[in-house]
Amino acid sequence: MITVFLYGKFRDKVAGSAVGKECFLEMEINEGDTIASVMERLDIAPDDVAHIFLNYQYSTANRKLHHGDRLAIFPIEMSVLYRQYFVKYND
């Protein structure tokens, strides 16, 4: 099980979500699941994503997921961040 926090228009993927509250869903993961495969299951296209954080680390979509992970995904409309701020973890 992992917890996926969604922002901006991705909040619509969670029934009853509201701006001003944390919007998250809990998902079962399978062996070998990556951020990209979970995004695919959520119908989130890679081009539509601005920022991904896995356990508070700025990440590419290639990283493998593990039980208990915290994943956060921001849509392209929220891409306010200087690229130089973080190392992008890629495993």
Binding site: F5, Y7, G8, A50, H51, F53, Y56, Q57, Y58, A72, F74, I76, E77, M78, S79, V80, L81, Y85, F86
Partner: peptide, 24 residues
């Protein structure tokens, strides 16, 4: 550019509250 044409006029700089929060 996505930042200057979309993100800043839509959400303003305060969009960074959630982003920096997720970055710890």
């Amino acid at each position: 550019h996505a930042v200057t044409s979309q993100a800043l006029p839509t959400y303003g700089t305060a969009v960074l509250v959630n982003i920096l929060n997720e970055a710890g």
